[in-house]
Amino acid sequence: MNRIISLALLLVVPHAANALNVFACEPEWGALVTELGPPDVELTVATTAFQDPHSLQAKPSLIAAVRSADLVVCSGADLEIGWLPLLLRRAGNRQIQVGAPGHFLAAEYVRRLEVPKVIDRSQGDVHPQGNPHIHLHPRNISRVADALTERLIEIDPDNTALYRTRLDDFQRRWNQAAEEWEERVLALNGLRFASHHRSFSYLADWLRLDIVATLESKPGIPPSGAQLATLLEQLTPDPPVGVIRTPYENEKPSRWLSGRLDIPEIMLPFTVGGRDDVIDLFTLYDVTLHMLEQRAP
């Protein structure tokens, strides 16, 4: 009986009142909060690398997490349109509503790619504000880090000095790493890949990869057999060096196409936790570059 009571207490244990409580929509922002937030930050990350941030539901556990959050850190640009507004409405937390300092959307601080000229659902599940998967460009991380620190200071001014130190330290390490990555970029310049969804546009922009085709003919619409056959025909004369996808995207279309073209199918980590050796933003970039370098001539 005592055990049951203590288990019940464990389940309903209230969040610590003093620690800064952050709700991150995606693992990359969770990782950034770990770098920049206070060491005792209480962090909830809504999705894992194996969950599609487009299609998540407003689960009870997330409502509970948003209820106690001082800050919500998400990608924005409509990536979480299906569930974040519901969480905000259900959680009864005024600190993290749209427009409040506790509502932070990373995509607002970077230049977004692929802003559609035609906004019509016949084009698939388009994001009117552009591609929201912004985290695979080192400069974007750096800019979001600056903005996030300003936000942390606004919410928790008592720790201003701490946040400034954490940011300086992070930016120093990040710039150093970015310089090393820049050395490796050249070898990847112009490498041609096919991609399942437009998940790697910023990575391709940075590395100047050539994404010759996406398996989805329209964003969010899974490829049909006929579409894949057409794609195979198009790519056969001059096949790309690999087919890349995220851990949460269906492997079957990629496997089929790569099998036919006799090129590797590559599941990039995409975000923190996408592979066992990807434990933070630094290893995310290291591992991603390493995997792509395997395909360089």
Partner: peptide
């Protein structure tokens, strides 16, 4: 009127 408890389990 709704109230959500400040717990890790959703209690409403």
């Amino acid at each position: 009127v709704r109230w959500v408890a400040p717990t890790s389990l959703l209690i409403e």
